[in-house]
Design a protein around this nucleic acid. Structure first.
Lengths: 99, 99
DNA sequence: AAGATATATCGGATTTTTCCGATATCCCTA
DNA sequence: TAGGGATATCGGAAAAATCCGATATATCTT
């Protein structure tokens, strides 16, 4: 992953919020409870909380995925997104060593 | 410092390079030797290495300063820039705790 | 197979960023 | 104090990002 693209992915208020919300899905996405949190949270829940359109949130999530910050899992007609904690650790190592 | 603005400051190849170069000024800016490295490296040296215009590099450096990533010291007609290592530590803490 | 629901992709208007040349400001020296 | 060198600021053209509505695709249900 290109360093510049990684930081660009983090240079947006909504995208940062999504990453923060996904740290505590149970509290931030209570409506997800009936479907479980095993694979994360589905796009619709995130969209509702973000208050932007479906297309924008979908694009933000795939951008975060391309940057490696989240993992996506398709289950039926839903796509669940969850944080990729390894990417956060790598980012810290990147800042410590490379930048 | 706003988180988004901080990541925006890091979302540019040249600005990232400048921060990397300033980790090892002696090797990356040998011409600075005769003026010393105590306060960092002056704008002209950084501009020469970056290969962009003087105005662009000057703006990039003040942007990095506003983001807190570098410190500036004016000495005569020169402005010396050096890394602000505390800001890098804060950034790591920010990623660990807030994001 | 048709309709409904969830998500992804496309095209585009608007805003922001990039990077430049020109010019202004600051400081030093003759 | 006039001129020269170093840096900062300004105005703007081009490129990229933001975020939308419309539409396409995928999946489930009936």
């Amino acid at each position: 992953m290109d360093q510049v693209e990684l930081f660009k992915a983090l240079s947006n208020k909504t995208r940062l919020q999504i990453l923060q919300w996904l740290k505590d899905p149970e509290n931030n996405f209570p409506e997800q409870a009936e479907y479980g949190y095993d694979n994360g949270v589905c796009v619709g829940q995130i969209q509702k909380k973000a208050g932007l359109t479906q297309s924008t949130v979908s694009e933000y999530l795939s951008l975060l995925q391309r940057a490696g910050m989240v993992k996506a899992t398709r289950v039926g007609q839903w796509t669940y997104y969850q944080r990729n904690e390894e990417a956060f650790n790598s980012l810290i190592q990147l800042i410590k060593k490379d930048i």
